[in-house]
Design a protein around this nucleic acid. Structure first.
Lengths: 146, 146
DNA sequence: CACCATTCCTACTATTCTAGTGGGAATTAT
DNA sequence: ATAATTCCCACTAGAATAGTAGGAATGGTG
């Protein structure tokens, strides 16, 4: 049905939360869970892949937590979703033509490949930095209204 | 995982097959199933929604079958997928903000909405006509090679 | 009129995927 | 020493997906 899974959605919110607190020291998962209203237990599932992919860094023990491994301008939604949902590929035969004997001259496959690339590029055009900017302009609008 | 479901994939191949035989009278589901190597039983699931949405027309009895309800230039992948997979909407809160108390000022939601629209427009830009043209140019390339 | 290809419908099943929970070990600042 | 925190494995319930079974209704053709 072409839905993003909870993993991807929550993962982006997790990373966005880290981006909003970038430069303020490690952020604990509990804080993120509370702010984002997401079960801490569930959020934990997202950590190992994000860490192993080098998107976040962790420090253990008291006052430990997570920080972005790169500036928000250098982390795109594509980076996050590639890790949590796998690389965008609308149908498997695009990445793995041997799955289907028709793939050699399959027009639909070519289309799925093109659209997959478009989606990928779209996700890549949204960085955490852009999200922060949007957040700020929303805040200003609210303050102005008050 | 952002995959197209079998319903959508097979549905496009079904419609593409109809497009390739457009103007040659009704095409039976059995013929399509044979040519596309898809179970006739499974293909049947796709017919009622496509028919009810006015994308194909059917005739029953001997020599019955299906035809496109519109010229291939006027049927896009979006039309087909909207019917078989539901309208593209990466996360439910985009179409239905009341699902989440945060939705009012949720930046991620705005992003999902924008990307959903981009994907939708991309699908809309591919018509059955375009697919036929691609098919023809592939055929010519093969003939030339021989 | 009888036949048979074909559309059409309901229901069922097996499998995989998704979302979420539980319990507890290892680490480290204070 | 304590407490906060990361870290890990395993489990479960429910939903979605893919596919199958059996047969009723329709209508052109001989």
């Amino acid at each position: 049905m072409l839905k993003l899974s909870t993993k991807g959605r929550y993962g982006v919110r997790l990373m966005f939360d880290l981006a909003l607190h970038n430069g303020q020291g490690p952020v604990s998962l509990r804080d993120i869970a509370t702010r984002q209203s997401i079960s801490e237990k569930y959020l934990w599932h997202l950590i190992p892949p994000l860490r192993d992919a080098g998107l976040i860094r962790s420090s253990r023990g008291v006052r430990g937590g997570y920080v972005l491994a790169h500036p928000p301008s250098q982390i795109s939604l594509k980076d996050i979703l590639d890790v949590l949902e796998g690389r965008i590929c609308l149908v498997d035969c695009v990445a793995n033509p041997s799955l289907c004997p028709r793939s050699r001259d399959c027009i639909p496959k070519d289309i799925w490949r093109d659209v997959s690339q478009t989606i990928s590029r779209t996700f890549d055009s949204f960085t955490l930095e852009k999200m922060i900017e949007k957040q700020r302009s929303v805040q200003e609008a609210i303050n102005y209204a008050i």
